[in-house]
Amino acid sequence: MNSPVTPSGSIWFRYASPASFYPLAGRLIPWFGAAAAILAIAGLYVGFAVAPTDWQQGEAYRIIFIHVPAAWMAMFTYLVMAFWCALSLAFNTRLSAMMAQALAPTGAMFAFVSLWTGAFWGRPTWGAYWVWDARLTSTLILLFLYLGFIALRASIDDPRRADRASAVLALVGVINVPIIYFSVRWWNTLHQGSTISMTAAPKMAQTMLVAMLLMTLAAWAYTIAVALYRVRSIMIEREALSGWVGDLERKAGPAAPTLTGATTR
């Protein structure tokens, strides 16, 4: 890393090795965690105290502040996960497969939350918790893709083989993301169309939009913090026998896994 010969003064290559990414991730976690908390508090404040009651849906619409960010996050996280999987297949890089592995549980969590909150929003507005609508069904498939990815990894003992098999699954499943996104346009669905679009003015009050965007940013910061935290656990386990993990272990003492978390090791 300190070698003057390598052309990679580039930060990307420098941090592509687990040994140098591990401490960097540890330093970043508190910042993203704090950002997530502050953005979520601000978003909930605007969403509940400032945003007006919807003239059509009453207070039930306030579910939007978590439903839409969760659904966006579930889709976007899948794309990021598939991106890391593609990198790991193409270049056989260790870190990218670990990143994909670290993202999957959080993506699954957001997919589940988007389905759950959608059900509790659908009941008062459509009269049903669930319908086999294109958007709902494709989001359910997204959840199953995440769970399948996790289960496939868990079922293969050799981590490099697990990397490859799960990467192929993730890349095949990526076709589902545009299907979710465009489902409200391609099919005649019960689910409403896009709330905001790039080309038209938002169909909602300014304050509602602000609350939703704050919650979306909170979801981003949360996902980054959690994925970095999880990837550190994955890294030490997969590189348990390498020198840098040994150094960390010696520094902190083998029998003292601290409860205070991120930055201690």
Partner: peptide
């Protein structure tokens, strides 16, 4: 997960 990982690292080492 983190605690278990460190425990497994210690065992493997």
């Amino acid at each position: 997960h983190r605690r278990e990982s460190w425990r497994r690292v210690a065992d493997m080492r």
